[in-house]
Write a protein that binds this DNA or RNA. Structure first.
Lengths: 180, 180
DNA sequence: CAATATATGGAATCATCATTCCGTTTGTCA
DNA sequence: TGACAAACGGAATGATGATTCCATATATTG
């Protein structure tokens, strides 16, 4: 029934605001249903999460493909992709936590593989082009995004007197990836 | 009684191997005592953790001070400090998690403040020297170490097909901090 | 409309942990 | 050695949260 959609929306909101440990009761409440209903549509909390993650990554793939097409140079494209993916993710606490704690399912998810493909092309183009450091690899991108997720999640939670700032983090990291 | 010491050691080992969520029962078991004994010596699990963290940070301060004294240039010193602190931390899963999830207590801990002081001097010297990017700040160091903690903790847990590697991470990050 | 199948709400169940309590053991001192 | 105190061990308690169950409500079908 269409309750499924409202559960999904509620979950998205709950995870975005409260992070991955938003409890199922809170999701049910937001959706205006009982917990039983949540479980009728999704076997476990994790399954619910997986549906959302997959969705989010589809969007990131779109962003990456657009950047690849629009970027006026390999470096421009890469930079645009990173910043846009980051901006899109930064508002969602839950997604940031996922980025920084890649669960096993993430690695095999179709959208994730496609994202890896696109960014792989971009890195390769940048290396060929001489704009990206010669030893760069596809793996550097998820690594960078993993760190981004951590910074964004912590910053969102207002943690510590340490000056955590995901924009600053990406600025430095991207400079580190650029060829000298 | 000297059980206090064995509890401390057991906790260090437990947190190092199992991460911060090692449970108190596991710590007690490792120490060969009952949970009651753990609580006789430390009011809460957090207090136990705080004792260990403080200890670890003392060591990091030493490492930093040595690097400052030995480094043949501000940049050398900074680099040496970062690599040595990282190496020293990398073996301890618990410490890595702490680095990547700076709890509030960390900010006010004396050793942490001293570490901030030392690294502040090093960054300032590097900027003055022209070897560190001009807009660098003390805050960049804990930020970098926070990311390091995340990478090391995930890598240790063998997470994902993503190529997480704290050495690679630091390499890129340090290049990002260096002046162009 | 009656009978059957499907969806719902939310209380009850289960598991996991930190923390507390108290009967027992070990150590000290006279 | 006997009595008191400090240190123990580990079962019991309390809290939190995912997941399960089932009585009830809603939709379908003949």
């Amino acid at each position: 029934m269409r309750n499924r959609a409202s559960v999904l929306d509620a979950a998205r909101a709950a995870f975005a605001e409260e992070g991955l440990d938003a409890d199922v009761a809170s999701i049910a409440e937001r959706a205006g249903v009982g917990v039983g209903t949540v479980y009728r549509h999704f076997p476990t909390k994790e399954a619910l999460l997986a549906a959302l993650i997959s969705d989010h990554f589809e969007r990131l793939v779109e962003i990456a493909e657009r950047a690849e097409a629009e970027g006026s140079s390999p470096w421009e494209a890469l930079e645009q992709m990173v910043w846009n993916c980051a901006r899109r993710s930064a508002e969602d606490h839950g997604l940031c936590e996922i980025l920084s704690q890649p669960p096993p399912l993430l690695g095999t998810m179709p959208a994730s593989l496609r994202l890896r493909e696109v960014s792989g092309r971009m890195v390769a183009a940048g290396v060929a082009d001489g704009s990206v450091r010669a030893d760069a690899t596809v793996a550097d991108i998820p690594m960078m995004m993993c760190g981004f997720g951590k910074m964004a999640a912590l910053q969102r939670r207002g943690v510590g007197p340490l000056g955590l700032d995901w924009k600053r983090y990406l600025t430095i990291m991207l400079d580190g990836l650029r060829a000298r």
